[in-house]
Design a protein around this nucleic acid. Structure first.
Lengths: 191, 191
DNA sequence: TTGTTAAACTAACACTTGTTAGTTTAGAGA
DNA sequence: TCTCTAAACTAACAAGTGTTAGTTTAACAA
């Protein structure tokens, strides 16, 4: 294989994310996680530091992926509409590749302890950049002059919730989903 | 006053919903709830049956409100677009009046025990009815013939997440928010 | 064979959880 | 004043929590 095979630690984090998605961070015990892995709870600590460290790994990996993706989109100076399409693709791609982690990011971020502030900073920056792209679109008359916060909220809500729908819709490819979403979010639904 | 003053039980449920929104059902302890109420944990049980009963009350009250609202909208046989507008108003109204309860419904439904099946039935019925309204709109050519599941997902995601944004946006009245949302969700954002 | 090591194990810890039992308090009606 | 009751209290419970310490196992390198 070209890709290195998964380490035990990575496996634990992957399974943990899956459980976090099902029940939430607080409701998942180390004994739950161990049982799913087929070992005893104490054995987990040969591989990971703490329950909290697992959450940090799951959430921050994805948060930084979004930050990187946003930076890349802002570098390629395209039109606002093109940048929005690229953002939709970014969300679809990440949601397809790691729906469980994304669920934890959306639902369990408030249980981050030491890294909470850092996470919130990344999220605020991301939202500010997203808002900026929409603002430019309104100035250029590419985008309707409706309340900008409502536009931002509506797009982010849809994109952030993708992880809930993607697992049920494997009939739709990543590209098809991006295309449909782009059409709906940008052009609306009425004829 | 015309409205009866809040009972102690109602107060407990209201505060519980607020805490559930902040940390999630599993992370809120009866001692947390009691401390916020200014009493001891054991005293809560003079008013409520169990922690689980609080969750059921919070979630099912709202779930039934949505079910009732949907039925009312389907009775008034308007165009699909008009019915979608009414649905948007329904979501905005409920989210404005009980954002905390709505948060619990969205994030903590999986912790329902005995009532889980009932909740899922209400939710499935609601989604099926929503889907049906969109279907009729496509048949009538009121709505673009894009993948119907993507349209449904996009609208529901936005409407279901309203509770996250409403508390920060009290500058926007309920009616103004409905109006902006309707414009964006139905007509899209491009000029 | 022997020594090393990753990764499992058992046992226990200190603390927190939802909840119950029984008691006290304070205000209203007689 | 006396009684009743809603609603608070203290104390305790059994079960579950994340985590640590120390031990065993099994595979591989020497």
């Amino acid at each position: 294989m070209s890709t290195k095979t998964e380490t035990r630690k990575e496996e634990i984090i992957r399974i943990a994310a899956k459980l976090f998605k099902q029940k939430g961070y607080s409701a998942v015990t180390m004994r739950d996680l161990a049982k799913t892995m087929g070992i005893k709870a104490a054995s987990l600590y040969n591989h990971i530091e703490s329950k909290q460290a697992i959450l940090q790994d799951v959430i921050l990996t994805i948060a930084e992926e979004f930050t990187l993706g946003m930076a890349s989109i802002q570098n390629q100076k395209a039109s606002s509409t093109e940048q929005l399409k690229a953002l939709i693709q970014l969300h679809v791609r990440i949601a397809c590749h790691n729906p469980d982690g994304l669920a934890a990011l959306n639902s369990d971020w408030m249980h981050l302890e030491d890294k909470l502030e850092y996470y919130l900073q990344l999220r605020n920056d991301y939202e500010a950049n997203f808002r900026h792209i929409i603002e430019r679109g309104i100035e250029n008359k590419e985008i309707k002059n409706v309340d900008i916060e409502v536009i931002l909220f509506s797009m982010l809500s849809t994109l952030r919730t993708l992880y809930l729908w993607i697992p049920k819709k494997d009939r739709l490819s990543e590209d098809e989903l991006s295309a449909s979403l782009t059409k709906i979010l940008i052009e609306g639904i009425n004829t």
